[in-house]
């Protein structure tokens, strides 16, 4: 039933797309139709796969590093008042900066290769991971803490047996958000300076008026992002308490 509705929605979107192309009669290099894009995709499948592979690696490494960093930061913040006073304002301020504007800097510092894209993905997901997990850690139901107190539990034991497990659903929602953001981060990094990846391919195709290839690369990125989100969603289902 669910796959049927996905199919229906896809067909509907394709029909609208084709409808616009037919009605406006726009030339191929302005707006290619779905059939043209599909054909281009097939012809360039190895080229696209090669670039998609690069982007995928950047995103996955970025996701892993960003999650790890976010989890560690949240634990530190939850554990120490000093850390909260010193680090939290900085965290909020970095979030107020447009990450896009940092991309050229990162390329300058870290070069054209993988590192600057991973850094970009990490930067973009670090905050959602940190803040969601931190919120979860600070919102432990008071009753649990009272109970632990009457049981003479140490701070560390409470963190390990109660506060962290109670915060896992929050961390799961942060990770799901991160799965959507991370590809955006990597692609921004690729736009600013790179010689590989789907972002690079899009820019290249666009510059040469190969709009059909640009569309093919963009749709590939979209499908990849959705797949990644689904995988992370499933992987975090137990954490979120959806599966027991």
């Amino acid at each position: 039933m669910k796959s049927l509705s996905v199919l229906a929605a896809t067909l509907f979107a394709l029909a609208i797309w084709q409808g616009i192309v037919t009605l406006t009669g726009l030339p191929k290099f302005i707006l290619p139709g779905p059939a043209v894009v599909a054909e281009t995709w097939w012809q360039n499948r190895w080229l696209i796969a090669e670039h998609a592979w690069i982007t995928a690696i950047e995103v996955i490494i970025g996701l892993a590093c960003g999650t790890l960093l976010g989890v560690v930061t949240a634990l530190q913040l939850a554990n120490s008042r000093v850390a909260r006073v010193l680090v939290q304002p900085m965290l909020v301020f970095t979030q107020a900066l447009p990450v896009f504007a940092l991309a050229p800097l990162l390329t300058l510092w870290l070069g054209y290769g993988l590192l600057s894209k991973v850094a970009m993905a990490v930067l973009i997901i670090y905050f959602p991971i940190t803040s969601s997990f931190f919120d979860g850690l600070m919102r432990t139901p008071q009753g649990y803490l009272d109970l632990a107190r009457t049981m003479q539990a140490g701070k560390r034991a409470v963190l390990w047996h109660i506060r962290i497990p109670a915060a896992l659903p929050s961390l799961a929602s942060g990770m799901r958000l991160a799965a959507v953001y991370a590809p955006i981060g990597a692609v921004i990094g690729e736009w600013v300076g790179s010689s590989q990846g789907l972002g690079y391919l899009m820019l290249l195709a666009n510059g040469r008026a190969k709009t059909d290839l640009m569309f093919a690369a963009m749709l590939t990125l979209g499908v990849f992002s959705i797949l990644l989100h689904m995988i992370v969603r499933r992987a975090t289902a137990r954490m979120a308490g959806e599966v027991r």
């Binding site: 109970l147 049981m151 539990a153 034991a157 047996h161 109660i162």
Partner: peptide, 8 residues
Amino acid sequence: SLGARLRG
């Protein structure tokens, strides 16, 4: 057994 686990 939560109490014992919390006290290690």
